[in-house]
Design a protein around this nucleic acid. Structure first.
Ligand SMILES: [Mn+2]
Ligand SMILES: [Mn+2]
Ligand SMILES: [Zn+2]
Ligand SMILES: [Zn+2]
Lengths: 150, 150
DNA sequence: ATTGATACTGATACTCAATATCAATATGAA
DNA sequence: TTCATATTGATATTGAGTATCAGTATCAAT
């Protein structure tokens, strides 16, 4: 019995006249298993352990493909780098990001989402997607800046 | 009669043991006059018209200085590039950004801001700043994608 | 006004994530 | 199996941003 996401991906590729490759499967699989939000470099390095020939460019290409297809999305860290997460069977949510340890807490709030739509309508703006990220310090890192932990 | 922001900037530099230079004045002035959110490259190109010797590095350095001082902030466009706006006498606000023409509409909503604080508290997260950007199409560009305007 | 410590600038070289190129290869429909 | 073509990985390249450093501007003290 096949897992749903891989099957959905296969159908998407078929519909677009694209091909299902070992590399694409590996990368999708990585995102499905990942518990954090890994950067392209991290994903590349990790996958190379099993597939040493996997190219950097292919990782970037495939992440872009998944993003455009709506199967993955980016999250931006405070230092300008970014990570990816898959979007299979995960309702929309936004992020709180620790500036010390990079931990990511996901949240969603129906009222905020509704207000965004109201505001958009008021300006006759057609919203397509949004990015709502709160930066600060997680419970573990505390309200004060990290000390000595250069 | 001096304009307030330049005076505030001067005092900030003095307090930090930093110097007030022609270049820093020019760049701050640019942001104060700007009506859109210009990229560092744009700012550099524009200022060169009057001061051909102005260096790229100085623009980047000064924007970073202004940002760290709390006098300017970044806004990220959908293509990954970013622009700056000054923060003198401007209350906090967030942005709606047109993916077609890049127009930026500013909005602020007290309820959303309050809910963010509530959510943070619930997770024992100490919020420092946030980024709330809605991407879509402005009134002018309409709900349908731009046609032929490659 | 002159001096002088030092913060600042701009030219240059460099970094590094991301992208373009392209010959070799894998995919999948027939 | 055949074969048109989508895909890959090696390589070169781009481009925004940064480090370096010799020369310069600032500004507080004289
Ligand atoms: Mn949201
Ligand atoms: Mn806000
Ligand atoms: Zn933390
Ligand atoms: Zn528009």
């Amino acid at each position: 019995m096949k897992s749903q996401p891989h099957e959905v991906f296969r159908q998407y590729l078929e519909a677009q006249g694209l091909k299902l490759t070992k590399q694409r499967t590996e990368i999708l699989d990585y995102l499905l298993r990942a518990r954090d939000h890994a950067t392209p470099e991290r994903i590349h390095a990790d996958l190379r352990a099993k597939d040493p020939m996997l190219g950097r460019a292919t990782v970037f290409r495939t992440l872009l493909l998944l993003e455009k297809a709506g199967f993955a999305s980016k999250i931006l860290f405070s230092d300008g780098s970014h990570g990816y997460e898959h979007k299979f069977a995960r309702p929309h949510h936004d992020h709180m990001i620790c500036v010390d340890c990079r931990e990511v807490i996901e949240f969603s709030n129906a009222t905020i989402e509704r207000l965004q739509d109201q505001i958009s309508r008021r300006f006759q703006f057609t919203p397509l997607w949004h990015r709502h990220e709160i930066f600060g310090r997680c419970r573990k890192c505390g309200p004060k800046p990290a000390q000595g932990v250069k």
